[in-house]
């Protein structure tokens, strides 16, 4: 017997899920709750195998519930149930310990399949969610810091500024030469410092030379 807790603030939807699961011989809905904090009161009182967890719960959202739940080692499985088909939500809740992610327009058959799959210890995603994850993997060209191995892409304009910095031009000279304001030059310089993890202009020049970032 699979003991299930439904956590969803949309009562009508929660009732609908309950009525469908009630017809299954091997599933028992042991509780329903309508906000994130209530999940933990239910857990304290009842024995639960799987939580059908809405991502967008009031008081404490699904991601925070997962964070708190999986801080300690637990056998409870979480199947996220969401209106959102966004890569950020999927990644975030999976990183925090959920085993599956299905969209709310899931039908009966898929719902039952996902429950069984997750209880057996495997992951399950709605087909549309799988697509979203794939798309993210293909498009993901994201950088947030420089490492020795990986220098972020320098923009065309930044490269022009960098070249003039290496040639020891002053900010005013760079501004005049590129027909931009002093403030714009300063902004480009700030961007370069941030993306190359340099602390000052000297560092900037060193990293630029070491990595052949400029055409000399």
């Amino acid at each position: 017997m699979i003991k299930i807790l439904i956590a969803d603030d949309h009562t009508m939807f929660a009732d609908g899920i309950e009525s469908i699961l009630a017809e299954e011989a091997d599933i028992e809905v042991v509780g329903k709750c309508y906000d994130g904090e209530a999940v933990f009161t239910e857990l304290a009182e009842k024995e639960i195998d799987l939580i059908l967890l809405d991502v967008n719960l009031p008081k404490m959202n699904g991601i925070e519930v997962c964070k708190k739940l999986f801080k300690e080692k637990t056998d409870i499985k979480v199947l996220a149930l969401s209106m959102f088909n966004e890569e950020s939500y999927v990644t975030e809740i999976l990183n925090n310990g959920a085993q599956g992610y299905i969209l709310k327009n899931t039908g009966r058959t898929e719902l039952l399949k996902s429950i069984h799959t997750v209880v057996e210890g495997q992951s399950y995603f709605s087909p549309a969610v799988t697509q979203t994850i794939m798309k993210g993997l293909v498009k993901g060209n994201e950088t947030s810091k420089a490492t020795n191995l990986n220098i972020p892409k320098i923009s065309r304009r930044e490269k022009e500024v960098l070249q003039l910095i290496v040639k020891e031009h002053t900010t005013q000279e760079i501004a005049d030469q590129l027909f931009i304001s002093l403030k714009t030059v300063e902004s480009h310089r700030a961007n370069l410092l941030a993306k190359l993890s340099a602390r000052n202009t000297a560092g900037l020049v060193r990293i630029a030379m070491e990595n052949n970032l400029i055409d000399v």
């Binding site: 966004e86 890569e87 950020s88 939500y89 975030e92 979203t132 798309k135 993210g136 498009k139 993901g140 060209n141 994201e142 950088t143 947030s144 810091k145 972020p152 892409k153 961007n191 941030a194 993306k195």
Partner: peptide, 27 residues
């Protein structure tokens, strides 16, 4: 989830027949 997540979703969502490369850097 914050600005980075939202921009990341924005980029992922683009249905681009020309398959442009979109680089996203944040510091």
């Amino acid at each position: 989830l914050g600005l980075v997540a939202a921009v990341r979703d924005l980029i992922n969502r683009i249905d681009d027949p020309d398959q442009r490369t979109i680089d996203f850097q944040h510091y």
